[in-house]
Design a protein around this nucleic acid. Structure first.
Length: 712
DNA sequence: GTAACAACGATATAGACAGCATGTC
DNA sequence: CTATATCGTTGTTAC
């Protein structure tokens, strides 16, 4: 099928032509035949890299040409910015809405295409964003994630809410290969387009001893080291390709990268450049190891990396300079980063409570699908490693030839249902129990006919919890949100978290930093760190001296959960006391990426608890607000006045303070020149410009107060 | 007596969304 | 309870 013959805007066709795309891939053509450009709903279950994005893009341009508006939902922030870049500059107004970066919400509605994470859309719905009612095309990327135990229900509820609002809206769902695409398609009233066609040939095989067995042929792999996995990498690199190696833990990723580095022993100025950049930014051990590996053409990739380190590794691999990345599943689901050979080395992964469990087939597919770069590699290879002869057949059966798992709704899970039911009531999607249940009829859960009684029992229990917590009230048969309930819904925190926080705040405890932090770290919304045996000493020592500073009673059977919350809280306390990043990473055995992760996570919860404090414990609002700024910036109390200035972060604020310039008055008294000596003339000038403004503000406030006083 | 190394046992284990209002060195 | 790689300790050998 020729692109020129399609009813899409000429500008778009021209931009494809410039990129050398003149004809559709077979699965793309199948989408058009199934009614893509006729407004039909589609579920497109085709492999990664076979052109799903292009399909969605054509439909979006087609809709906008007819005056429509499109919402493109993705599961990850990184994916949101990737898609945003991709859709921008093709004639349409594109907006992006994620937690980090968003255009003003009302302004967002002026775009033709809005890219957002599912949680952000949920939050926009809760805040009654008007333009959501104007959506005529909804694109769901990676829709199979509806199966995710913790986040899947959000996507499901968002889809149900949007369909409820805009019944005529077209839906295009993009999915990996799944076991029951028919069920999903049925739910969405969509035509199913299924295919396993790929632009690059994919060969899947199992390595054993000295060769890879594929379905129809074998391939020798020269043995040159005592490590099988390393030989597999060297084999591809010698041939001019790159490798992605998926392993089960961060340690494994780092260890493999080290091994690969000493096996490759590459060296060139570009690699040295990457290495220098990493080394100059990172003070941590991990960063130094990464730099050393990158210098020799290998790298590792996991969530402990700082953002910049990730970017360098990804860019270096895309440029073809870095030959191998050893990665945890970070790279499997996220970015588009293909390589000629993908090695799935660890197909068992540690799972809390279960020990080592085999990864799902779908995840294997996702990793294997990264093999083969379109237009660059002659073919792609996905390789599993067998430890014994018997394993060869087993791996073929369990992964290569195995059908993908079914996706199942996660809606009946009480823990996640809690937050969604509250939001239904808070936003008037449902005003009585019957309406809640009727709304749930529109979910994937109900469509699959999974036990309706289990769902209604779960709903009852959730409603009871919400009533008891006084987040909703029941007047006759009517359900209404209380001020508390609607606040919790808008703050976008789990009602169970809110209960934990409010209960502790109203317990008349004296404010302590660690009390607040540990409390927040024990809520289900908080991302907490693993506790190793080594950490226990640190925790015990803290408890010995500061036990009474905690707000929470230490449960007599304090288990892993408590330890994790305390460890995370201690890290955050260090952070807010300006302990250096390197010290923190060493002390808690984490990477810089983890530090930013927990800081971001807690900053959000501190913000939420400040709002809760205003409602339930006003005397705590002040100290919590201070803590909000301190966690956000990583500063001690004494820098609070300075941090409010634009252009002043934790480093400059500390410099000023140490030079005796700890307050706005001190800055004013010192004058621009003296301040300039500490933080540079240019920034100093900026600061003084603001100081004028601040003075005006203070005077204004003063007048207002004076006025009030007069009337009082 | 000491260095190098094998054998063994203890140890530890992936990822990541949201609020809000603007800007680090 | 499940698996695997790493790392520290102890035990062994070679000079």
């Amino acid at each position: 099928m020729e692109i020129a013959d399609l009813p899409i805007p000429p500008d778009l066709a021209a931009s494809y032509a410039r990129r050398g795309i003149t004809e559709l891939y077979p699965p793309q053509a199948a989408c058009v035949e199934a009614g893509l450009l006729l407004g039909k709903n589609l579920l497109i279950a085709i492999p990664t890299a076979s052109g799903k994005t292009l399909v969605a893009e054509m439909a979006m341009h087609h809709q906008v040409e007819r005056g429509g508006k499109c919402l493109y939902i993705v599961p990850l922030r990184a994916l949101a910015s990737e898609k945003f870049e991709e859709f921008s500059g093709k004639g349409l107004r594109v907006g992006i809405a994620t937690g980090d970066l968003d255009r003003r919400d009302d302004y967002l509605g002026r775009n033709d295409i809005i890219v957002a994470t599912s949680e952000k859309v949920d939050s926009l719905l809760r805040n009654r964003t008007p333009w959501l009612a104007e959506i005529t095309l909804l694109v769901l990327d990676e829709v199979h994630l509806i199966d995710d135990p913790s986040r899947g229900a959000t996507l499901e509820m968002v889809v149900a809410k949007l369909r409820h609002k805009n019944p005529a809206m077209q839906i295009i769902a993009l999915s990996a290969t799944i076991g029951n695409p028919g069920d999903l398609a049925g739910w969405l009233d969509a035509e199913l387009v299924e295919s396993d066609w790929r632009p690059v040939d994919l060969r899947e095989g199992v390595f054993f001893q000295n060769g890879i067995q594929f379905a129809d042929h074998n391939r020798e792999v020269g043995r040159q080291s005592k490590y099988e996995d390393l030989d597999l990498v060297l084999d591809t690199v010698e041939e001019g390709g790159q490798c992605l190696v998926f392993v089960s833990s961060r340690k494994n990723a780092e260890a493999f990268a080290k091994r690969a580095a000493s096996g490759l022993k590459l060296a060139n100025p570009t690699l040295a450049g990457y290495a220098d950049k990493i080394r100059s930014n990172a003070g941590t051990d991990m960063g130094r190891i990464l730099a050393a590996c990158v210098a020799q053409g290998a790298a590792f990739h996991h969530a402990g990396l700082a953002r910049e380190e990730r970017q360098i590794v990804e860019a270096g691999f895309r440029e073809g300079e870095i030959k191998v990345i050893a990665s945890t599943p970070t790279l499997a689901a996220g970015l588009n980063l293909p390589a000629r050979r993908v090695i799935v080395r660890d197909y068992l992964r540690f799972n809390a409570g279960e020990g080592m469990v085999p990864i799902p087939v779908r995840e294997y597919r996702q990793m294997a699908g990264r093999a083969g770069r379109p237009h660059l590699d002659p073919y792609g290879e996905a390789v599993l490693i067998a430890k014994s002869e018997e394993m060869i057949g087993e791996l073929f059966d369990c992964y290569i030839d195995a059908p993908a798992e079914d996706v199942r709704s996660q809606c009946a899970n009480e823990a996640v249902l809690c937050t969604h039911i509250l939001s239904l009531i808070a936003t008037n999607f449902a005003r009585e129990t019957g309406e809640v249940l009727r709304f749930m009829d529109g979910t994937f859960y109900a469509h699959c006919g999974e036990s309706p009684r289990a769902l209604s029992r779960a709903v009852d229990r959730v409603l009871e919890f919400l009533r008891e917590a006084e987040m909703i009230t029941e007047v006759g048969e009517w359900l209404e949100p209380t001020e508390y309930g609607s606040l919790v819904s808008r703050l976008y925190i789990d009602p169970r978290s809110a209960e934990v926080i409010v209960t502790a705040m109203t317990g008349r405890k004296e404010y302590t930093d660690i009390g607040l932090l540990q409390l927040l770290c024990s809520t289900p919304d908080m991302l907490t760190l693993y506790v190793r045996r080594n950490d226990m000493y640190l925790l015990d020592r803290f408890l010995a001296d500061h036990r009474d500073e905690l707000w929470m009673e230490i449960p007599w059977d304090a288990g892993e959960g408590f330890d994790r919350s305390l460890k995370t809280a201690l890290l955050l306390l260090d952070w807010a006391n300006e302990v250096g990043e390197e010290t923190i990473c060493e002390r808690y055995n984490v990477g810089p990426g983890d530090v930013y992760g927990v800081v971001e996570s807690v900053a959000w919860l501190v913000h939420a608890s400040r709002h809760l404090a205003r409602l339930f414990a006003p005397h705590l609002a002040g100290p919590i607000e201070e803590m909000e700024l301190r966690t956000k910036h990583g500063i001690k109390k004494e820098l609070l006045p300075l941090i409010r200035l634009r252009g002043i972060g934790r480093v400059r604020a500390r410099r000023l303070f140490n030079n005796g310039l700890g307050s706005l008055e001190a800055l004013r008294a010192a004058g621009p020149e003296k301040v300039g000596k500490v933080i540079g003339q240019k920034i100093a000038a900026q600061v003084f410009e603001q100081l004028e403004g601040v003075r005006d503000e203070i005077e204004e406030v003063g007048e207002e107060q004076a006025t009030l006083f007069r009337f009082g």
